[in-house]
Design a protein around this nucleic acid. Structure first.
Length: 598
RNA sequence: GGGCGCGUGGCUUAGCCUGGAUAGAGCAUCGGGUUCCUAACCCGGCGGUCGGGGGUUCGAAUCCCCCCGCGCCCGCCA
């Protein structure tokens, strides 16, 4: 029996234990066949995903021509060169132009489990790297509560941060708070007077103000009506404009930032419920106050394509940047000398470049042109760096069109979460009568909120997500509860075995069942998946991995007994423990709450 | 009109960057599984000309071009 002891020297990725000698042997085989292959080329071509009974696959077609042989023939020849097999290689088989390599089951089990037990909480995490990343996400205007459409940004951004950190990259999240625009000014304007003195048109839209209501809901209530009211009331518009000007000049109304903070706190409370928190809030006005915006304007005035408009506005002739604008001109300072969003955003990004090695912005597709404009202005002032953009598409609703508060097609995040939790509670009550009220509540909250988060995370950002209540609230199949259930099931086994923590002795020779081997292959894939997501920002890939892992655990669970097993009992318990550990890390990374029971 | 994104079984989707083995999954549907470790589960069936056309290639869902459909953006708004 092996008893894994924690050791800091165990590398993050189980693959590193077997890969180098294997790759050497494959290179030798190529060399023996007189086919020139470079190591990097081979490593890139190797498929490590693991399939029906194999661990490594290599499609040889690309070298067939050079070798002057048909792919199946070449595969045969190469496979023959890898024989006789010796540890850790169990078999080298040729099939349809592929060389399929299978490791000894024992090797797979030992290497994978020792890595998991050796690293434990650090399994799935990589060693620290130098260079901090900044992820700016959400940054929604603080004008009211989140509807589900806005939350996609937060879910993508937050998941990305978690994965970057797991990759060893220190990461800071920033919420860029717009306190300078008309929208924020409208909030301050309407709330600068008591509700009973509001214009009737606005009162009509927000008839009762409940002081106990969450701040983002309460303070945002009159907002849509204010928007309409201003269109037909120039004098009110002038008052709002005066607030905007006051902010620009550095002396905002006393209430301004307090109101915005209050509303923002409410918004962030909702996000906290699905596990999303921010490290820093960057107030847009702070960039102006510090003089950073002024410096950017100065640099832009001296830029290669700077032009002055007749009325005194400053612009950049952007015809060289192929922006999809009718006039290839970017105004960078208004005629009245006041600043603009893009210009302030340049200042913001310069401040990020000064602090961070990697700058990532999560943006809705409607900000695509803004991003291109920002890039153009950064180029104009000679800044060589650019942010990485993670662009996501909108949520749409069955009636057509995107989710929008103004059109009344928005679904409040709070309402969706409440309904999800309510339904989760019903599910818990349906199957458990042994839990305390507190436990039921805790499980329902975890299941409901996780289901919502996962539902949005699982789809690639560039796809539009069709929002349907029934699907967002589903607890079966590709959902968070499916994942939580697998985790809870594993936890239950360990509880019953009385082995809720390491050490987990195991005999790697007893884990040869195909479902066990398949499960081990899933487990060992996590570090690679984390690396991939941190490199490509494709956070949804981790949601897919979580499902694959849970799915394979379920198959294993149904295929072999654990607690009632004979000689294999301890080893299977170890495998369950490794699965549970891997599952917990994965769930943490995607913001799904792991449960011990459900 | 220009730019960007998307278009895969009835529905929702993975795979597309880095082209390769019968295009994976979930929902729905049909048929099985619980005296046995949590059935929010598992096993099996049905269902796909990967929007259309052309090209590159030994090989295209994947790369290139054209077209069609849908979404978004094209403000001295943010």
């Amino acid at each position: 029996m092996n008893s894994a002891s924690p050791s800091p020297v165990i590398p993050p990725d189980p693959w590193s234990r077997w890969a180098p000698p294997l790759i050497d042997r494959i290179l030798e085989a190529f060399r023996a066949e007189s086919i020139p292959v470079e190591r990097p080329e081979l490593e890139a071509a190797l498929d490590r995903s693991g399939g029906e009974g194999w661990d490594l696959a290599l499609a040889v077609h690309r070298w067939a021509r050079i070798a002057g042989r048909a792919p199946p023939r070449l595969a045969d020849d190469l496979a023959a060169r890898l024989r006789p097999e010796r540890p850790p290689l169990r078999s080298a088989a040729a099939a349809q132009g592929y060389v399929n390599l299978t490791l000894e089951p024992e090797t797979v089990a030992r290497g994978t489990l020792e890595t998991v037990f050796g690293r434990w909480e650090r399994y799935g995490h990589w060693e620290p790297e130098a260079g901090t990343a900044c992820v700016e996400h959400t940054s929604a205007n603080p004008t009211g509560a989140f509807h589900v459409g806005r939350v996609r940004n937060a879910i993508i951004g937050d998941t990305l941060v978690r994965v970057l950190r797991a990759r060893g990259i220190p990461a800071v999240t920033q919420y860029y708070v717009d306190d300078m625009g008309r929208q924020a000014a409208m909030i301050t304007w309407i709330w600068s007077r008591p509700p009973d003195s509001w214009p009737p048109e606005i009162r009509a839209e927000a008839p009762t103000i409940d002081p106990a209501e969450k701040a983002d809901r309460r303070l945002g209530r009159p907002y849509p009506a204010v928007s309409g009211y201003l269109k037909s009331h120039p004098e009110a518009q002038a008052e709002v404009a005066a607030i905007v000007r006051a902010v620009e000049e550095g002396h905002p109304p006393a209430e301004h930032h307090r109101r915005i903070s209050e509303i923002l706190d409410g918004m962030l409370q909702s996000l906290a419920r699905i596990g999303i928190r921010f490290d820093e809030r960057v107030w847009e006005s702070s960039l102006l106050d510090s003089g950073a915006v002024g410096q950017v304007v100065d640099r832009l005035l001296k830029a290669p394509h700077a032009t002055l408009e007749e009325n005194g506005a400053a612009a950049i002739d952007a015809s060289g940047y192929r922006l999809p604008k009718e006039e290839a001109k970017i105004i960078v300072r208004r005629a009245d000398g006041t600043s603009l969003y893009v210009t302030r955003d340049v200042a913001y990004h310069l401040s990020k470049f000064a602090r961070f090695a990697r700058v990532i912005d999560v943006l809705g597709q409607d900000h695509r042109l803004h991003a291109q404009t920002l890039d153009a202005l950064l180029a104009e002032i000679g800044e060589p760096r650019r942010p990485e953009y993670v662009i996501y598409q909108d949520l749409t609703v069955p009636e057509g069109g995107r989710m929008s508060t103004r059109r009344g097609t928005g679904v409040w995040l709070d309402d969706l979460l409440d309904e999800a939790v309510r339904r989760a509670r019903e599910e818990v009550l349906r199957r458990r009568d042994d839990l305390s009220e507190a436990e039921i509540g805790r499980i329902a909250e975890a299941v409901g909120t996780s289901a919502v988060r996962y539902h949005i995370l699982r789809v690639a950002p560039e796809k539009t997500v069709l929002f349907r209540w029934e699907e967002a609230l589903s607890f079966e199949g590709r959902t968070a509860p499916f994942l939580q259930y697998a985790h809870a099931r594993a936890a239950s086994l360990l509880r019953k075995a009385g082995r809720e923590g390491p050490p987990y002795p195991f005999d790697p020779g007893l884990l040869g069942h195909p479902e066990e081997q398949a499960l081990l292959r899933r487990i060992r894939a996590l570090p690679g998946r984390v690396e991939y997501v941190a490199r490509t920002n494709h956070v949804h890939a981790l949601a897919g991995y979580a499902h694959d892992l849970a799915d394979q655990f379920n198959r294993f669970y149904h295929a072999v007994p654990v607690l009632t097993a004979g000689a294999e009992r301890d080893s299977r318990i170890a495998l369950v423990a490794a699965t549970r550990r891997t599952m917990e890390t994965t769930l943490d990374l995607i913001g799904v709450t792991p449960l011990e029971t459900m």
